[in-house]
Simulated scan of single mutants.
Amino acid sequence: MLFPDVHSAASLTVSPDRVQHFTSDSVSLTCEGNFTEWRVRKFSEDGRLYSDCRRMTGSTCNINTSKSDTAVYWCESGSGEFSSAVNITVQNDGNGPILVSPVHPVTEGASVSLSCSLRTQKILSNVFFYHNDKLIQNDTRGELKISAVSKSDEGFYKCQYSGRESAQSWMSVKGADSSSSPVWLIVGLVCGVSLIIILLLLLYRCRQSKCKSLFSVFIIIIIFIIIISSSSRSINIDISLNICHG
Rank of each mutant, 00 (worst) to 15 (best):
L2D: 03
A10H: 03
S15G: 07
P16Q: 01
P16S: 01
D17P: 05
R18A: 08
F22G: 02
D25R: 02
S26E: 09
C31L: 04
C31P: 04
E32W: 10
R41C: 13
F43Q: 11
G47H: 06
L49M: 13
C53H: 04
C53P: 07
R54Y: 12
R55A: 09
R55V: 04
T57H: 00
T57K: 00
T60K: 06
C61N: 11
C61W: 06
T65H: 02
S68R: 14
S68T: 11
T70S: 14
W74S: 03
W74P: 00
G80V: 08
G80Y: 04
G80R: 01
F82Y: 08
A85S: 08
A85L: 03
A85R: 06
I88G: 01
I88T: 01
I88P: 01
I88V: 14
T89A: 08
N95T: 07
G96E: 03
I98N: 00
S101A: 15
V103E: 00
P105L: 02
V106I: 14
V106M: 04
T107R: 15
V112S: 00
S115D: 06
S115G: 13
L118Y: 07
L118W: 04
L118K: 02
R119T: 03
I123V: 14
N126R: 13
V127L: 07
F128Y: 08
F128N: 12
Q137H: 08
D139M: 03
T140H: 11
G142N: 07
G142Y: 04
L144D: 01
K145W: 10
I146R: 04
S147R: 09
V149R: 00
S150D: 15
E154C: 07
C159G: 06
G163T: 01
Q168N: 12
M171D: 01
S172F: 08
S172P: 02
V173H: 03
V173Q: 01
K174V: 10
D177M: 10
D177W: 06
S178K: 15
S178M: 14
S179T: 15
S180Q: 04
S180A: 06
V183W: 03
L185D: 15
I186D: 11
G188H: 09
V190N: 13
V190H: 11
C191W: 10
S194Q: 12
S194Y: 11
L195T: 05
I197F: 09
I197P: 05
I198K: 04
I198H: 01
L199N: 05
L199R: 03
L200A: 12
L203F: 14
L203I: 14
R205G: 05
R205S: 09
R207E: 15
K210A: 11
C211H: 06
L214F: 10
I221N: 01
I221G: 00
I221Y: 03
I223A: 12
I225C: 12
I225M: 12
I225V: 15
I228K: 02
I228L: 12
S229C: 09
S229V: 10
S230W: 09
S234K: 02
I235L: 15
I235Q: 08
I239S: 13
C244A: 11
H245P: 05
